[in-house]
Amino acid sequence: MHSFIPPERFFPYLSWTDIQEMPNKENVVIIQPVGAIEQHGPHLPLIVDAAIGVGVLGKALAKLDSSIPAYALPSINYGKSNEHWHFPGTITLSTETLTATIMEVGESIYRAGFRKLVLMNSHGGQPQVMQMAARDLHVKYGDLSVFPLFTWRAPNITKELLTPKEAKLGMHAGDAETSLMLALLPEQVKLDKVVAEYPPEQPQSTLLSWEGQLPVAWVTKDISKTGVIGDATTATKEKGDRILESLSDGWVQVIRDIYHFQPIRRD
């Protein structure tokens, strides 16, 4: 049941009396991984985002100093993935359903006495949902600190391992995700089906981009025939191992910082 998560760090393995008697609950870090079940091209399984989140978190929790109390909740594997729903197999929740799920999980964690909740999101289509839910939870419970974080934004070396084009335009099922999956679930990667496909280039004169400062809304079929937005042909397990080590080191630092975080009180 705990997958990549160390069993001693897996929240559901605790009993209710373990939680009742837990000391210093206001500083215990509770981490909710949030992924997606969605297409990732012909070479990767649907579970990529959920697997990456739990894989990175599990590695980080195994490295984390045992003196820092931190626990992983079971992953929310379904996400808001309607940008991919033209590709068979994608399962999507609405913004409202995902928000309600996050809110109710947060409320349950709060009732148990915890005051630090991390939303560890690994799907690029829903950071805004995490941010809005986090703000609403904090508005409702002023002493609950909620951290809406994206897995790939912890300090890591990934971009150093990619070509300049991939670092700029690779967004989905490309080198980084494929390499990391080769490290986490290599038997689920179909190397004979890897492809490279980038979105159409925007005119150099425009300020607009597919992602970034001034984006346009798109769905995957607008910019990709295969479901890949990047170059999966350059992926290797060696790169994946390095990405996993780097990302998990970054998350050790993030969890440590959240444990020591002291909210501002202006009652």
Rank of each mutant, 00 (worst) to 15 (best):
I91E: 10
K140M: 13
G227C: 01
Y141D: 09
P203G: 03
Y13K: 14
K239N: 13
A133Y: 03
F4A: 13
I264K: 14
V54I: 10
A176K: 06
A176I: 01
T220P: 02
P23H: 04
A173V: 01
G79N: 07
H260V: 02
K225S: 10
L137C: 10
I76M: 14
P6V: 13
E107N: 12
I229W: 03
S248Y: 05
I229G: 01
T206G: 12
R135N: 06
L161N: 01
P7S: 15
Q32W: 11
K59Q: 15
I47P: 00
Q202L: 14
T151V: 14
F114W: 07
R153A: 01
V28Y: 03
P23V: 05
H86E: 12
V194C: 02
G124T: 09
G79D: 07
S209P: 02
I76N: 05
T95K: 03
P200M: 09
P215E: 08
A60H: 05
G240S: 12
E201T: 02
N121I: 02
G125E: 13
P203C: 01
H138N: 13
T17G: 04
T234M: 05
G53T: 11
I52T: 09
Q213Y: 09
S248G: 04
T163V: 11
A60K: 04
V252Y: 04
T90G: 00
E245R: 01
D249V: 08
G250S: 01
Q128C: 00
Y71E: 07
I157K: 08
G240P: 12
V252F: 05
T90P: 01
I243G: 08
K239C: 04
E38N: 12
W85Y: 03
I31M: 11
Y71R: 07
R265S: 13
G35H: 09
I102A: 06
H2D: 12
R242D: 07
D249C: 07
S209D: 15
G41M: 03
A72N: 05
